[in-house]
């Protein structure tokens, strides 16, 4: 490369060197994508930050300092939605990831019969939109609906459970069930891809050394899949903190906001009542900061182990 550069330079003094020319061409390739991300993501993010220091409605906004942030601490509904998001995160993400990992480990066995069929079936929910998932589950779990009737036939319950509006627990449980259904297969695919890059002779060696299946799983599979597990954990955390469709369509946030998510509340504050853009922006920054902190935390923990 160096030799080419010097020969070019001596040949035509003011023309760009080959290296410089390629560097510029490279920038041309990535400029559309970069500008779009800056324009459609970073710039609005900055505007949201400015908004979060303002109060008022519609076009009449005035500087309010940290008032919006201070109000967050007093807003019972916001605190409830924050709690809800954390309940979803703490209960749903671990269950789903462990389940996905177990399924991937089982399906990675090349001697397993019907492997492709199992994989396709478990992966299929990913093709369903979150709105569809919400509506299907809302209909299945309706009072007097399929799930209640089946549970009664099985003798597991005596009377109908009002899943959607009965209590905060049932409504949140319903959202968690729907989330696990929708996303387990998706995460399983990540693990299956990760497993394929693990050398199978490792397992043979462990087998000869007398390690049983569970020990092999703990000592070989989990450590070698660590980067993938980290990635899925970060993606799911991010997704869970941003939940909207399920809260909005499956439970409508009810009963009395007990299953509502932060994004749902932000949407309500921005578009369903008298718009409080400033307050909504402050809330959205809470989500952003939580996502950032949790991602960093997970990367730290992932690095240590």
């Amino acid at each position: 490369m160096n030799r080419v550069e010097t020969s070019r330079k001596t040949h035509t003094g003011r023309k760009l060197t080959l290296y410089q020319k390629q560097n510029l061409v490279g920038w041309a390739f990535l400029i559309p994508a970069t500008l779009l991300i800056i324009w459609m993501c970073f710039y609005p993010m900055l505007r949201a930050l400015l908004l979060s220091f303002q109060s008022g409605t519609g076009a009449r906004m005035s500087f309010a300092g940290l008032k919006n942030y201070a109000y967050l601490l007093k807003d019972g509904i916001f605190i409830q939605t924050l709690k809800n998001n954390f309940i979803y995160l703490i209960i749903q993400v671990p269950i789903m990831l462990v389940l996905a990992l177990a399924l991937a480990a089982l399906l990675n066995n090349p001697h397993l019969r019907l492997r492709g069929l199992y994989r396709t079936a478990i992966f299929l929910p990913c093709a369903t939109s979150l709105v569809s998932v919400s509506l299907i589950f809302r209909a299945m779990f309706a009072v007097g609906g399929f799930v209640n009737i089946t549970l009664m036939k099985l003798g597991l319950i005596q009377t109908d459970i009002n899943w959607i509006n009965g209590s905060g627990e049932t409504a949140r449980a319903l959202i968690i069930i729907a989330l696990i259904w929708r996303w387990t297969g998706y995460n399983m695919v990540f693990y299956l891809s990760g497993l394929q890059s693990i050398d199978s002779t490792l397992y043979e060696a462990a087998y000869i050394d007398g390690a049983n299946r569970f020990q092999q799983f703990r000592r070989i599979t989990v450590p070698l899949l660590k980067p993938t597990i980290l990635l899925t954990a970060i993606l799911s955390t991010n997704g869970t903190l941003q939940l909207f469709d399920e809260s909005y369509n499956l439970t409508r946030g009810g009963p009395s906001n007990l299953s509502m998510t932060m994004s749902h509340y932000i949407y309500r504050m921005s578009f369903e009542t008298v718009p409080k853009f400033g307050y909504a922006a402050a809330m959205s920054y809470v989500i952003f900061i939580l996502v950032a902190i949790l991602a960093l935390l997970q990367m730290k923990v992932g690095d240590k182990r």
Binding site: P44, M45, L51, N238, I266, A281, S284, I287, F288
Partner: peptide, 12 residues
Amino acid sequence: AMMVPLAATMVP
């Protein structure tokens, strides 16, 4: 940009 929630950018 992967960490930026739509809830934050949606109003702007």
